[in-house]
């Protein structure tokens, strides 16, 4: 019961902060709302017993990536953007229409009888040890060791690329 109420409050805060991200006037407001959104999602991960991912969400997303965003906003000294609802023109109306259609489509697909989120035979029994550091580490270094090595190469190339692009003057 308590868990239900907590979940719905968290979902509501996540939706409100998401709306603030896309409607906020200054980029700093958007960035701070996004941090709140990330914390809400980390809390839902904890409720789903994905403990390791919840910690990674807070450290990597809300910590590292958002600090990078705020750093760049500070470096660029941007002026305030037009918000979503002032200067509401045809292009924005079309974007809203497209997004609404997309949401309706997802709702329609999941309302079909042939599509079920929980197929037959899935009991949904709880295995709390699934999301622990021990379990994640065990699978990451056995079954998923090849993708793990690949992702390290991707990160290295991204770091080198970022340094080269940000350093060089484009003529």
């Amino acid at each position: 019961m308590i868990v239900d109420i907590l979940f719905y409050i968290t979902a509501l805060v996540a939706i409100i902060s998401g709306l603030l991200v896309i409607t906020g006037k200054s980029p700093v407001t958007s960035a701070l709302s996004l941090v709140l959104n990330f914390f809400c999602i980390a809390f839902i991960y904890l409720m789903l017993e994905a403990q390791f991912l919840a910690i990674i969400q807070v450290i990597v997303y809300a910590g590292a990536i958002m600090v990078l965003f705020l750093f760049v906003i500070m470096l660029l000294n941007l002026q305030d953007d037009m918000t979503l609802f002032e200067r509401f023109d045809l292009k924005k109306g079309f974007a809203v229409l497209l997004t609404g259609l997309f949401l309706l489509e997802i709702a329609y697909i999941f309302s079909l009888d042939s599509v079920s989120i929980a197929p037959k035979g899935v009991t949904g029994a709880s295995f709390p040890e699934l999301g622990t550091v021990e379990s994640i580490g065990k699978y990451l270094f056995s079954d998923f060791v090849y993708p793990f090595e690949m992702i390290s190469v991707v990160l290295l190339s991204a770091v080198v690329g970022a340094v080269v692009i940000a350093k060089k003057k484009v003529d």
Binding site: I15, G18, V21, F69, L98, F102
Partner: peptide, 24 residues
């Protein structure tokens, strides 16, 4: 909730003009 958040992201990418907000 995931579908709603994804739609918000789509709306943000389609409507905002600031490149940093689009990345967010």
């Amino acid at each position: 909730l995931s579908a709603i958040l994804f739609s918000m992201g789509v709306l943000g990418v389609l409507t905002r003009k600031n490149a940093i907000t689009i990345f967010m």
